[in-house]
Design a protein around this nucleic acid. Structure first.
Length: 275
DNA sequence: AGTGTATCCTGCAGGC
DNA sequence: TGCCTGCAGGATACAC
């Protein structure tokens, strides 16, 4: 569900209400979303104060006193919500009672999400396994080209691999490839320098626009206040199989590989490399 | 080493 | 109405 723009929106929405709050009580209602024993998970959080709320890839990173870090990955349907009378969790998995109202709840229908308490060092090591932040100033087109050149996998699959680039998921991978006129199944290493420049600009553009629109809500995604995002109307190919391409009116195609759907315009994104 | 497939889980939409 | 199938924004354990 949530990709970089959705997680960024949630993080921004959590900051004000969470920084300087202390965690008083943790109730694990669904142990399978917690990656450690519920007792040690709770013990690692209880009594600690929130110092920062940041994002790394698709992870929400809550930095706490005593060198603890709560890392939340939302999976497909996870939400991290301030629990107010108007915002009710439908599938609460973990509840956090703070020193002030409102409390915080991790809600997740499918329970593919995960929560974990780490030390700062453990988190730093984990973070090294993630690729660069696509919106970072140091992420250049030439860096992207170098990384693409190392992989023979389909470029859409390349985007989804968090070790290569952090935070991109299926929606924005497909959108960026459409903007760059690159077929989703083309080998990553077949993307040439000129195409990489366009693709680099495209992924950053797509992610920035989605952040401005507060994320894409297709079904489940909500921000920390329970509000949906407004980016769905900005999507050009994702989920539009059978509908006309917005550039050329050719039918948008759906193709399944790597267990995920890819959406593309066969005319705007020919499979044969133009390289 | 790198890549593709199967699996975790629930809910919803569409076909019959 | 109900039953069935397919599908979903993610990550990961495995087989090759």
């Amino acid at each position: 569900m949530p990709e970089l723009p959705e997680v960024e929106t949630i993080v921004r929405g959590l900051r004000d209400g969470l920084v300087d709050r202390s965690i008083q009580r943790v109730r694990v209602l669904r142990p399978d979303v917690v990656r450690q024993k519920p007792r040690s998970f709770s013990a690692g959080l209880r009594g600690r104060t929130v110092e920062r709320v940041t994002r790394r890839g698709k992870n929400i990173v809550v930095s706490l006193s005593d060198d603890r870090v709560l890392v939340v990955n939302l999976g497909m349907t996870g939400r991290l919500l301030f629990s107010t009378p108007t915002v009710r969790a439908t599938h609460p998995a973990v509840r956090f009672t703070l020193d002030q109202e409102p409390s915080l709840v991790f809600d997740d229908v499918r329970r593919f999400g995960s929560l974990e308490v780490l030390t700062g060092k453990e988190w730093a090591r984990r973070s090294e396994d993630l690729g660069p932040e696509p919106l970072g100033t140091e992420y250049t087109a030439s860096r992207m080209l170098t990384d693409l050149a190392r992989s023979a996998s389909p470029v859409r699959s390349w985007f989804l691999d968090q070790r290569r680039i952090a935070g991109v998921g299926n929606i924005y991978a497909n959108e960026a490839l459409f903007l760059a006129a690159i077929h989703p199944r083309r080998p990553a290493k077949s993307v040439n320098a000129a195409e990489a420049r366009v693709l680099h600009r495209a992924i950053r553009q797509v992610l920035r626009t989605a952040i401005e629109n507060r994320g894409t809500t297709l079904r489940d995604y909500r921000d920390a206040s329970g509000s949906p995002g407004e980016n769905a109307g900005a999507l050009r190919v994702y989920g539009r199989a059978g509908q006309p391409c917005l550039s050329c009116s050719t039918e948008v195609q759906r193709l399944v590989f790597g267990n995920r759907s890819a959406f593309f315009c066969p005319r705007c994104q020919p499979e044969t490399d133009t390289a």
